[in-house]
Design a protein around this nucleic acid. Structure first.
Lengths: 170, 170
DNA sequence: CCCAGACTGTAAGTATACTGTCAAATAACA
DNA sequence: TGTTATTTGACAGTATACTTACAGTCTGGG
């Protein structure tokens, strides 16, 4: 029984590969997000950071990076930009001189409330081409896959562990 | 009948949103790719460019950007890096002084042959946590979604249109 | 043939996203 | 307690990814 011949080296193979499809969907998702939210001048990552700070006021940068699965070194500049727009403020932690605590400012909380509908429109548009049943199926599979692959992409802490110091009510 | 209350503003809502899941899967996919292919010093995008040039020798940068769904301005630096590694060469087009034609060098063709198994291992690993049936289902849904959303992310040309000048045999 | 418009590669500017390294501060342990 | 280990935020360096702008080139209509 002859072994399967090696796949031809062709760009068509790439189009069906998971890596290509994930990259492409990420491009499309960002594009749709920016389109729906262009009135707010917020990127998807900045939005995620705002939401996370709103959910966990007083979180520090390292834990925030775990919560939104975002590289610690990049997060610095994201926070800087949010600070420059006066959406976020940083206060030194009294009990640990290394740490700076993150809080939403009033304008930060306000823009978060205002942008939510646009974000929801964007999320809906990403899946719109699929039949409703397929949307659910896709989301279910993705949640599973991301969860089971979580270790693969280096994130310093699991989100739950990251939040211990904030208490259950965090 | 009361209208559905507004969703609470919480990071948990983000975790189930398509935009977050696509970004996260892209991170994971790149991470797995780099891990499997670290011996070759090629990024996913550089790999896609090599494959596309191999499939369409003599393609120019603008058409290449359409074929791999990659921004035209970023592609310049990607090609530069591939050129610096001596995997790609650029020749001026005789009939159009604006255009530079792209070709794989011998080392470029060689590394492409060598890296294929590692890339296939990476692609397999991305989906490994899922049951085989679910992998197929996920890929099917993603192919559909990317295809139907293709217009959403600005790509200058559809891949098929981009290749007309190269002839059917391209 | 001329010129308005389109196309090509390139560059500047912004924003992720990752790898490292580093110094200061804290924690853990012999 | 004192020394080592870890943690934190910051920085440098590389590589996407997008926007706008631009100079050179080509093409099509008048």
């Amino acid at each position: 029984m002859p072994s399967k011949p090696a796949a031809p080296i062709t760009i068509d193979a790439v189009y069906a590969a998971p890596g290509y499809l994930f990259r492409r969907m990420q491009q499309i998702a960002v594009s749709i997000f920016m389109e729906e939210c262009k009135a707010f001048d917020l990127t998807p990552v900045q939005y995620a950071a705002l939401i996370a700070i709103h959910t966990h006021p007083g979180i520090d940068a390292t834990r925030l990076s775990a919560v939104i699965a975002f590289d610690r070194s990049t997060l610095g500049s994201v926070i800087e930009r949010l600070q420059a727009k006066d959406f976020v403020e940083r206060k030194p932690a009294p009990e640990d001189k290394r740490i700076k605590l993150l809080y939403l400012t009033k304008p930060g909380a306000a823009i978060l409330r205002e942008i939510i509908p646009a974000v929801e429109r964007a999320q809906a548009r990403m899946l719109e081409p699929l039949k409703p049943g397929d949307r659910k199926a896709l989301m279910g599979l993705l949640v599973q896959l991301v969860d089971l692959n979580n270790e693969a992409s280096r994130v310093p802490l699991r989100a739950e562990d990251a939040l211990e110091h904030l208490g259950k009510a965090g």
